[in-house]
Design a protein around this nucleic acid. Structure first.
Length: 272
DNA sequence: TTCGTCCTGGTA
DNA sequence: TACCAGGACGAA
């Protein structure tokens, strides 16, 4: 499932490959993947535009187009955005094909059909992304900003880390890994944290995300980068999907529970 | 704040 | 053959 590190990996990969190129044609194979417009409107507004820039906000990819419009892409669970040459064998589960100048195309594929593409004006983007919390890897995101985001909430830390309106980009994998690095039990509540624990949580979130980016993302089955390659971080995870295995820090046994309906992995011995 | 919903391939 | 995985959103 693409979270901040996976989306960042795709953006870094696709940026030099797509920026400056014009969109020549659009093929919508599954209209449900397009939000806020019919496939015809979507295609009509995109064809002829040039990609001026590609950035990330939370788990969104933002293709900035000539004229100011933005193509927002959210991969949700199983979405992929891969650059292929036009002649390459067609992907199974392809939903939208964005043809580019120069005999290549961006293929959006999505097994579970949760992912969405949406074309928005600059004003609409502000509205669509306005409720997102701060970027945890931003330079200005310090311990004080983390406390401001989560401090007054009463829910378990695990639930809060997944809430995109509080903190942008963390999903189930990196929430579990961040709490492990911080040595905090996922059920802990913000008001119980000491100053040292806040610092540990801040560092844990950033280290977990940074490690994921350095390994070009986590692939269990679905994630692929902008060229269709899997990531490497699944081999370096400490707790996520390691139920029953030994804790890399204390040797205890990794446990699994459910918090807010999400599988949650942690070491009961050293995450207190 | 929690839960159901959307989805379907993979697994028990 | 039934169930599980979970990001985000709307409803309760």
């Amino acid at each position: 499932m693409p979270e901040l590190p996976e989306v960042e990996t795709i953006v870094c990969e696709l940026c030099p490959l797509t920026v400056g190129r014009g969109i020549t044609d659009i093929e919508v194979l599954w209209p449900g993947s397009i939000a806020g417009a019919t496939p015809e409107e979507f295609a009509a507004r995109l064809v002829g535009r040039t990609i001026d820039g590609l950035t990330r906000r939370a788990k969104f990819l933002l293709f900035h187009l000539t004229g100011g419009d933005v193509l927002l892409v959210h991969l949700r669970m199983t979405g992929r955005l891969v650059l292929r040459s036009r002649g390459a064998a067609e992907e199974r589960f392809a939903k939208v094909i964005i043809g580019l100048e120069g005999d290549e195309e961006l293929r959006f594929t999505d097994i579970r059909k949760f992912g969405r593409l949406q074309l928005a004006t600059a004003e609409e983007v502000v509205d669509l992304l306005g409720s997102l919390g701060p970027e945890p890897l931003a330079e200005e995101f310090g311990v004080a900003e983390l406390k401001r985001a989560l401090g007054k909430r009463k829910a378990p830390l695990k639930s809060l880390l997944l809430n995109q309106t509080l903190l942008a980009g963390v999903g189930n994998i990196y929430a579990d890994e961040a709490l492990f690095l911080a040595g905090l039990n996922p059920q802990r509540r913000p008001r119980s944290l000491s100053e040292v624990e806040w610092q540990g949580l801040h560092a844990g979130i950033r280290r977990a995300l940074q490690a994921g980016i350095e390994d070009r993302g986590t692939t269990f089955s679905d994630f692929r980068d902008g060229r269709g390659r899997p990531g490497n971080h699944q081999d370096s995870l400490s707790v996520y999907r390691r139920t029953g295995q030994a804790c890399p820090r204390c040797g205890g046994t990794i446990a699994r529970t459910v918090i807010s309906g999400r599988g949650t992995h942690f070491c009961p011995s050293c995450q207190v």
